[in-house]
């Protein structure tokens, strides 16, 4: 299997606070890997560092061999990495369709944009129904679908998903996770950050457990799901 994303000995600090203290992880082509851990463990920071929103202090991050640390944050999308941020960050004052069009900001080919729009609508029929509605008036679950659909507009090689289940009702959480599973089976490589460890592990191939800036455990998602330590710490069992 080919390694798509590779992080080696990554360190990140906010001023004097060391958020990430030397982590290494890999995501292979076509894999769904989750990064679980408690609040403040550094999960979101890790994703922000991958997409360049937060600068790394040291270490390396490569996507398909390309050094991401040498690429401007707004150019990351151009090499096929899309990031769905925590809290969705949809453009509230724009319509659903305008949001999706912004997702294809770097795409010049109008026919491709149209094709992608149709694919996204096929994936998320709810978005098609609400295409003219302002994104700020959507429900949390719909905003999450919009954020994911927007990230898919460039046909990225890899998706970074940050807390997709945050603030959603149990039914919607299930719905969102089954959508993530579908994206995965369509062949998109995904790095998923979740507090809902049980759900994340149940759909992932592999997982890493992040604890105060360090990776404490890693392995097959199924194994972690049945690991006593993980169960006690993150699955409430």
């Amino acid at each position: 299997m080919r390694t798509l994303l590779k992080i080696e000995d990554l360190h990140v600090s906010y001023g004097a606070v060391r958020a990430i203290k030397g982590i290494s992880l890999e995501v292979n082509d076509g894999e769904l890997v989750s990064l679980i851990g408690a609040n403040g463990a550094g999960k979101t920071t890790t994703l922000h560092t991958i997409s360049g929103l937060v600068p790394a202090e040291s270490g390396s991050i490569t996507l398909d061999g390309t050094d991401l640390r040498k690429i401007a944050p707004n150019k990351i999308i151009e090499i096929g990495l899309a990031h769905v941020p925590e809290g969705r960050h949809v453009f509230a004052r724009m319509t659903v369709e305008e949001n999706l069009a912004m997702g294809a900001y770097i795409v010049r080919d109008k026919a491709k944009i149209k094709r992608q729009l149709e694919r996204v609508y096929a994936h998320f029929p709810r978005l098609a129904e609400r295409s003219r509605q302002l994104a700020g008036t959507l429900s949390g679950g719909e905003q999450q679908m919009l954020a994911m659909g927007r990230a898919l507009m460039t046909e990225p090689k890899m998706l970074l998903l940050d807390e997709p289940s945050m603030g959603l009702s149990p039914i919607l959480v299930k719905e969102i996770f089954s959508m993530i599973k579908t994206l995965h089976s369509d062949g998109i490589t995904i790095l998923l950050v979740e507090q809902n460890a049980k759900m994340a592990l149940s759909i992932s191939d592999r997982a890493y457990v992040l604890e105060t800036g360090l990776i404490s455990m890693s392995g097959k998602a199924q194994d972690l799901l049945h690991d006593d330590k993980v169960r006690r710490a993150y699955l409430g069992a």
């Binding site: 997409s51 707004n74 990351i76 999308i77 941020p85 960050h89 004052r93 724009m94 900001y105 990230a151």
Partner: peptide
């Protein structure tokens, strides 16, 4: 226009705009 929409995006949510590939 593309630039006009980019302006609206940056004014609404800078980090999301960056993730779309917009140069702030």
């Amino acid at each position: 226009t593309k630039m006009g929409r980019a302006m609206r995006c940056v004014s609404e949510d800078k980090s999301a705009a960056i993730l779309m590939g917009i140069s702030v």
